[in-house]
Design a binder for these strands. Sequence first.
DNA 1: TTCATTTACTTGTATATACAACAATAATAA
DNA 2: TTATTATTGTTGTATATACAAGTAAATGAA
Lengths: 147, 147
Amino acid sequence: MNDSRNAYCKCLFYSANALTRQMNRMAETAFKPCGLSPSHAFMMMLVNNEPGIAAGSIATVLMLQPSTVTRLLDKLEKGKYLKRVIDGKYVSVVPLRKGVLMQNQIQQCWSVLYADYTGLLGKEQATRLTNQLYASSLKFENTVHSI
Amino acid sequence: MNDSRNAYCKCLFYSANALTRQMNRMAETAFKPCGLSPSHAFMMMLVNNEPGIAAGSIATVLMLQPSTVTRLLDKLEKGKYLKRVIDGKYVSVVPLRKGVLMQNQIQQCWSVLYADYTGLLGKEQATRLTNQLYASSLKFENTVHSI
DNA sequence: TTCATTTACTTGTATATACAACAATAATAA
DNA sequence: TTATTATTGTTGTATATACAAGTAAATGAA
């Protein structure tokens, strides 16, 4: 059985997707208590840490497409976690009370997630993997974006 | 700017997702010439290599949920790339001529993808990253599945 | 043999995400 | 100042993927 996997598991597309799906499942569970999906929670944290951040910066920092940011913001705004402040073509985002009050809980969920995957992979491997992934995604960023 | 990223980029959820999104974008481009999405192409390769493979095995090998496999199969079957052979509750999958004839082209696209990302990351880093991802996803598999 | 349980797959529904096309605004050049 | 171009964000539409619930078939126990 594992032989049949061999060809694919040597492909970065395959292994990156496999791990990410599992990671996302774990993250979804970890963030459940706060009632937000991991992506929404990350966005909320970012807005709490940088009130008034431009929508475009959110996209850059979280490495998401602008349209994805729009959709995530829509939901958080509808839930009264934050609001858009529109100034001409610029949109900045500020947290609302509900979002600010949630920060603690989000960070707790985040800690749980961290504990979960380091428990599984070991602290060392987890750190190494994370660093390599991040370094690699920066390399992608510079090339893939600027075509 | 990069300081604002710092907190997140140390998280495996964040970095895995970031890289995977970029990887997927690249893969989508690489597989475009064959007219299949990367996931469909992978599934097609697998079925070509193991004609008659059980649907459940596809899920295991590709590390996908059964429902996801169903959906991917639906599309490939509709496109006459393969067909399901139903035997009681068992479903096995066999390639059709169109799918078999496509194998070459798919593999070519796969080579292009490989060349693309090794060109970007360097062969060494690409291999290291892939192996670590795969090894990690196996660790996840054993725990996350069996809850 | 019949009933309960497990297995294998599908369907309904929801989500995150993307791309391409669009609007509205700002910046620049003429 | 006006006309062009670039920037910023949103909408329409499509995709992959997942979970939960359902169905049908196989297996095991009584």
